[in-house]
Design a protein around this nucleic acid. Structure first.
Lengths: 222, 222
DNA sequence: CCGGATCCGTAACGATACTG
DNA sequence: CAGTATCGTTACGGATCCGG
């Protein structure tokens, strides 16, 4: 019949009633990267059953986390997006990610899928919108051989899969080192010095990059 | 065989591999209230199967989130506690709770279990340890008719179920109003003015309460 | 009585096939 | 492309049983 519920008057239990089932939060993560078609989601979530994805999407739409839009011709396809509540939910996941990353991520194992845009979501969530005013830059990342970029456009940030066209800054680093910087175990200055982090671009753009994503504190103190 | 995994090199997916299964995070929540016996946990999680609880506890212990201690006689029983990683995980859940509370909690429905200590965990997580130095107070809460209290003792806070012995401050409020204050929709000053919030105790203790739990901003601006 | 383990029916999930 | 239908497998829920 109905959905399984914990039956508790507790915000955590209610939240888990809503989004605690298998795959739900990973769907939300992928929608955080922008509008996705059903097939895009399926491809990014290997192992999910097609019918389960349909069920989850219907539920996310019903509870106001996702929305389904029908693009006009010639695109003529359905896409799913996050509502503002959905975007807020993504922000609420960042501390959970910050908890798990240094403890669980380790080195990549054979068979594990990876997309450079996943780690970038954390950066994008930490954007300083004031500092991003009138900034119009593209920062490209190569993480473990996979490319994605951040597009900053006057207060707004988008995470985009794949290499950038003509990036203002390019960043190359391993995921474990990226995580170590994020958790304060590794200073950016040290990572640059021993070649674990490569940063290219004009100094002005690099300085904007640090400012917009609040990385100042990570440069030389933990 | 083994546990089900998403097989993704992503901190969110790894975190959910670890603690995303049914009941796991609610067990963590209850352990955040202090050492619990197996039977205590069973009672606080109506609907969980006894064998599932045992499985979850074994897993939480194996991954370093919980620990099992054997109390010496005459208490002679086993208790489960959180490790420091487990406590960190509880802190990482607070934004998720802050997301869900104003959106999902609503009014309490028939049959929903409730414990006043659950909302207090959020307050306790937000303690200002500096401000709590040399403070030694007990703040009692009556939320929807259920009692619990916060025990501040020189930098440390504990959430304790039930009424307090001789509280320095007593607080009485409905859960929806408590949530509205936490989310900034309701100002403490307004809630006091129209009788939705009752605060008793000597002015010095009340002022320490506000300071220790960083409630200053909620008094008269959102 | 506490701390589980065992067993079994039901619900959720995963994989594949199929359809508008 | 965007799903639905079906079916085998796994996970969960409830009850009972068992050892210290």
């Amino acid at each position: 019949m109905g959905r399984r519920s914990y039956g508790q008057y507790c915000a955590l239990a209610k939240t888990l009633d809503l989004v605690g089932e298998r795959w739900t939060l990973l769907i939300v993560r992928d929608l955080a990267l922008g509008p996705k078609r059903y097939a895009d989601l399926l491809e990014g979530l290997p192992g999910i059953g097609t019918s389960l994805l349909a069920t989850r999407l219907k539920h996310l739409e019903a509870v106001g986390i996702a929305a389904r839009s029908r693009l006009p011709p010639p695109a003529a396809s359905t896409v799913y997006t996050l509502t503002t509540d959905g975007v807020a939910l993504v922000h609420a996941l960042v501390p959970l990610v910050a908890w798990g990353a240094p403890r669980l991520l380790g080195r990549r194992r054979r068979g594990e899928t990876f997309r450079a845009e996943w780690p970038l979501l954390v950066l994008a969530a930490g954007v300083d919108r004031e500092a991003a005013a009138r900034v119009r830059d593209v920062y490209e990342f190569e993480l473990d051989g996979s490319f994605a970029h951040l597009r900053v456009d006057n207060h707004d940030v988008a995470v985009v899969p794949g290499p950038a066209d003509r990036p203002d800054v390019t960043v190359r680093i391993d995921v474990p080192d990226f995580v170590a910087i994020g958790s304060g175990e590794l200073r950016i200055a040290d990572a640059l010095a021993d070649g674990r982090l490569h940063l290219d671009g004009d100094p002005g753009a690099i300085e904007r990059f640090f400012r917009v994503f609040r990385l100042g504190a990570m440069i030389d103190n933990g």
